[in-house]
Amino acid sequence: MPSPINPDVLARQDELAACFCPRDPFRHVVIENFFRDEYAQQILAQFPPFERGNARNEAGELGNKSTVEKICGLGSAYAALDDLVQSREFLDLIGKITGIDDLLYDPWYFGGGTHENRHGQDLDAHVDFNRHPANRWHRRLNLIVYLNHEWDDAYGGSLQLHSDPRSVDDRVITITPKFNRAVIFETTETSWHGFPRITLPSDKQALTRKSVALYFYTKDRPAEETAGTHSTIYVDAPLPARIQAGHTLDEADIDELRALVERRDQHNQRLYRDLAAMTAQFEQAQAALYSGHLGRLRHVARVALRRFRGG
Rank of each mutant, 00 (worst) to 15 (best):
M1L: 13
G63C: 15
E15A: 15
L260I: 04
K65W: 05
R56Q: 11
V9P: 01
D164Q: 01
H162N: 09
S3Y: 06
P7W: 08
N64Q: 13
H293W: 13
F282Q: 07
D250A: 10
N57A: 02
E186D: 13
F50Q: 00
P201I: 06
F20Y: 15
N57M: 02
D265N: 12
V303L: 12
A18C: 04
D128K: 02
D124L: 01
A241D: 14
R273D: 11
P177C: 07
G63R: 07
L200K: 08
I97V: 13
F34W: 08
A18V: 10
F308Y: 12
I43S: 04
S3W: 10
D8N: 10
E225H: 03
F34N: 09
V235H: 00
S291M: 04
G112T: 05
V9C: 07
V172A: 13
V172D: 11
N130W: 09
F216S: 04
A40M: 02
Y105I: 01
I43W: 13
S202F: 12
H193G: 05
E189I: 01
T176W: 00
A287I: 01
H115T: 10
I233N: 07
T199K: 11
R263N: 14
E225R: 03
Q266V: 12
P165Q: 03
G194D: 08
L104E: 13
K210V: 06
T190L: 13
G73P: 06
I198L: 13
R298P: 08
S163N: 09
H293Y: 12
V145Y: 01
H299L: 14
G194W: 10
H115K: 06
K96F: 03
T98W: 03
R309Y: 08
N268K: 15
L159W: 01
T248I: 13
R263L: 03
T229Y: 04
E189L: 02
V183K: 01
L93H: 09
R306V: 15
D37P: 01
W151T: 00
D8H: 11
V145F: 03
E186N: 05
R264D: 05
I31P: 00
A276M: 07
A276C: 06
G310T: 04
R88W: 12
E61V: 06
P201R: 09
K204C: 12
T279A: 10
W137K: 10
I100C: 05
P238G: 11
Q269V: 04
T218K: 07
W192K: 04
N180L: 09
G120H: 05
V29F: 09
A18Q: 14
H126D: 01
F195M: 08
E32P: 11
R56W: 00
E225N: 04
V303P: 00
Q41V: 14
E89M: 06
A301E: 15
P196F: 12
F26L: 11
G112Y: 09
F35L: 08
Q41H: 15
R242P: 00
T229Q: 10
D92M: 08
G228P: 09
F20K: 03
Q42N: 13
L84K: 07
D124K: 01
T176F: 00
D152M: 08
Q41R: 15
V68W: 07
L81R: 05
D24N: 12
F26K: 07
D220F: 04
E150I: 12
D106V: 08
D164A: 03
R27K: 13
R88Q: 15
R12L: 04
G95Q: 05
Q13T: 15
L10W: 12
